[in-house]
Amino acid sequence: MTGIASLMGSAATGLPSLLAQVAQAQRIPGKIDPVPWCPAWAFWVLAALTVAGALVTITRRNLIGAVMSLVATFFGLASIYALLSAHFLAAIQVLVYAGAIMVLFVFVVMVLNREEEEPWSLRSPVLKAFGTGAVVYLLVRIGELLFFARPPLPQRAGTPPPNFGSVSEIAEYFFTKFLFPFEAVSILLLIAVIGAVVLTRTVAKPTSVHDLPLDQQPKDPAADEGDSGAHAAGHGAGGH
C-alpha cells in the first residue's frame, strides 16, 4: 500500500516535468535519424546493460542483489524505448516497473525473509547434463537461424511520424484501434482483485487428515485409524 501511495505521489509530482521533457524531445519532422543526439553505439551499450542486469538477476543467490540488478535491466530497457522514440513508454517503464513493481518486490523479499532453498533444482547429474545439452542445442539452432540463414534484412521503415511515441498518439490508439483490448484488460484486473480476495481470505483449520501437508499425513491407513490421538496432533501441526 505504501509503495502504491508513494508511486502516486511521485507520479503526481514527476509526471508533469516528464511530460514536458517528452514534448521537448519530439523530433523535427523530416529528420532521418530518429535520435539525433545519440550515437549508434549507444544501443549496444544499453543492450549490454540490459542483458547483463538480467544475467545478474538470475545468478545472484542474494535476493536483494537480484532485485537491484533487475532495476538496472529496467532502466536499460527504458533507455532503449527512448532510443526508439517511444518516450512515453520509457517514462512508464521507469515509473511502473523500476518504481512500483520493484518496491513491491523488495517488500515481498523483506517480509517473507525465507531461507535459501532450491525446491526444483536438478539434482541428478544425468538431468543436469541433459538440461545443459538441451540449452546448448537451442542456442545453436537459434544462432544458426539468425546468422547463417542470412535473411534479407528489413529496410529502415523510414522516419516515424512526428507525433510517434507521444502521449496523445498512444491515447488515440487506445481509444480507436485498440479500444477492445484496452477495455478487455479491465476484466483481467477485476479477476486479479477478486482472486486476491479469494486466495487470502482467512479460512478455518484443516478438518481431515487429507488436508494436512503431505509429509504429515499418516503413511498407513491402518495406523491412522488405530490412533485417534494422531488426528488431534496432526491437526495442531497443520493448523497454522
Binding site: F180, V185, I191, L199, V203, K205, T207
Partner: peptide
Amino acid sequence: LVTVFLGVEIMSLGVYVLAGMWRKSQR
C-alpha cells in the same frame, strides 16, 4: 494476436484462482 494474448490471460487468471480456492487443502 493482441486479443489472443488477452483471451489466454483472462481465461487462465480466473482458473488459477479457482484451482487454489480450496484453501484448506495443501494439494
